[in-house]
Computed example of a mutant assay.
Amino acid sequence: MRKLLPIVLALPLAACGPSAEERAAGVAAFATVQQVFQHPRCQNCHIEGDAPLQFDAGLLHAQNVARGPEGKGAPGLPCSACHGETNPPASYGPHAPPGAPHWQLPPPDMKMAWIGLPPAELCAMVKDEARNGGRDFAALTKHVSEDALVLWGWNPGGERAPVPVPHAEFIAAFTTWANAGGPCPEG
């Protein structure tokens, strides 16, 4: 009787996925990503309900502002009624409505609400294409690297605190996390 030997296919090492060290570096990098996403500049608009928050304290937005059917404000009171394409000049005062291109909340069917989420849940949400607008890691990286509304978080104007992690450091951490396959912290 002939004995059959298993056939072993030689796969490139990259096809086996990230190494344990890369995954560990990715999890460590996600701590920086979490710090940015859960800063008021991001989480004031990434809300569970339909009323955005404002200021560093995350207070309920004045004027009964609502998300609206597309995330651009309620009919008759779009976000753009107060929020222009850029921050207003300092002469408008420290609490003038800030501005950036396409000022809006995420749409109601994809809220990406992450206030108070533990790291593992935030991580899972961010990389879940069913909950992030169909973005793979390349699209997510482009979004956090180039989108003018995202970039506004580092130049919020007025007396608003910018995201405390420098943008280049955030992008490096995000890229490390994404390149490792988006590993999530335990728990």
Rank of each mutant, 00 (worst) to 15 (best):
G181I: 01
H95V: 15
Q104H: 12
A62V: 14
D136H: 08
F137T: 09
D50R: 14
M1N: 15
P185Q: 06
E121N: 11
R67E: 03
P108G: 08
T86D: 10
E146V: 01
K3D: 11
H83Y: 10
D56H: 07
L140G: 08
S91W: 02
A15L: 06
P88A: 07
D56A: 11
W154E: 00
T141C: 05
G49Q: 07
Q104A: 07
G93I: 14
L117C: 09
P106I: 10
H143R: 10
P166L: 02
I7S: 12
P89C: 07
P107V: 02
L9K: 10
F30M: 03
C79R: 10
L59C: 15
R67N: 09
A139M: 08
P118T: 11
G99W: 14
I171H: 04
W154R: 02
I171C: 03
T176F: 07
M1F: 08
L140C: 07
I47D: 10
A81Q: 06
Y92G: 02
P166T: 02
E169T: 00
C42V: 14
P101H: 09
L60P: 11
G71F: 03
A148V: 01
P162R: 04
C82Y: 10
A81E: 12
A62K: 13
F137C: 05
P118M: 03
E129Y: 05
P156A: 06
R160M: 06
P88Y: 15
V65C: 06
G157C: 08
G49F: 12
N87S: 12
P119Q: 06
L140K: 10
P119Y: 09
H167M: 01
P98C: 12
R135Y: 05
L151R: 07
P119K: 15
G84R: 09
D147G: 03
P69Y: 13
G73V: 00
N44S: 08
P119M: 09
L53V: 02
W114R: 12
P52G: 05
T175W: 09
L11W: 09
C82S: 04
V27L: 00
I171D: 01
H102L: 10
L13Q: 08
G49S: 12
G116D: 04
P107T: 05
Q54P: 12
S19H: 03
P78N: 05
G133T: 00
R131Y: 00
H39E: 04
V8R: 03
V163G: 01
P107K: 10
